[in-house]
């Protein structure tokens, strides 16, 4: 579904990502682990096509289409969507208006999960939303786009267990159970046990230094030794395809 080939990315002439490779197949869940400022969100924004993130080398393919030079909205049209870690406020624009504009099907407004954001609909987008409200709003917006591949950027950050469970249930019911592929970016890893990813990648200083089909292996090492020791880890592995 999504193939990232040898991708290097610059921001303001500074290399942030270095020769990143990733292959996410249909229906797979991948986790991208890494400390703050390791380049995880840069990868997300580059997959989305944000102009600030300049691809200096490599390609991104989505469903056999080279999307490296496509606009953001063209990528969305192909089925890519992203839940933002810190979505910006859009003043004076109600969430309900945006949802009506973007929803692929009207049935979104009838699904039971929609009731969870009923108190947010008449509010301005992300203006004064709590952390949990922002995450809920992001997930509902994503679902309304009916994507086939979703990036969840730190969807577990700042959430208590109750809210995290609520969010994960929606992700499970509305995305995973519908065969949507997922790239879950996480720093603290709270979401790993809920999503049980097929592959976990570890990113350090813009490079993927470990990719494992058993997410527990790198995660336990990280818990034990911290991210900084990952580079020295003798057990780290890299998947070739």
């Amino acid at each position: 579904m999504l193939k990232i080939k040898n991708l290097s990315v610059k921001v303001d002439e500074k290399f942030i990502l270095k020769k990143v490779n990733m292959n996410i197949k249909d229906g797979e869940i991948h986790a991208l682990l890494g400390p703050n400022a390791s380049g995880k969100s840069t990868l997300a924004y580059t997959i989305m096509g944000f102009q600030k993130y300049k691809v200096s080398e490599g390609e991104i393919w989505f469903r056999d289409i080279n999307i490296t030079n496509l606009s953001i909205e063209e990528r969305v049209k192909l089925g890519i969507a992203m839940a933002f870690q810190s979505p910006p406020a859009i003043k004076n624009v109600k969430l309900s208006l945006l949802l009506k504009r973007i929803a692929k099907e009207k049935s979104i407004f009838n699904m039971k999960e929609f009731s969870l954001i009923s108190n947010l609909l008449e509010r301005e987008i992300n203006v004064g939303f709590s952390g949990g409200e922002k995450k809920l709003s992001e997930i509902i917006q994503i679902i309304s786009l009916k994507p086939t591949f979703v990036i969840l950027d730190e969807i577990d950050s700042g959430l208590d267990v109750i809210n995290l469970t609520k969010i994960v249930k929606i992700i499970q019911d509305k995305l995973i159970n519908n065969g949507v592929s997922i790239l879950a970016i996480t720093h603290r890893g709270d979401i790993l046990q809920f999503l049980d990813p097929d592959v976990a990648h570890v990113m350090l200083e813009g490079e993927i230094i470990c990719s494992s089909k058993d997410w527990r292996k790198p995660w336990e090492t990280i818990l034990r030794c911290g991210y900084e020791k990952c580079k020295e880890c003798e057990e780290r592995e890299l998947l070739t395809n």
Partner: peptide, 8 residues
Amino acid sequence: NYLRSRGL
């Protein structure tokens, strides 16, 4: 970018 990432 945020709104474009919603397809606008």
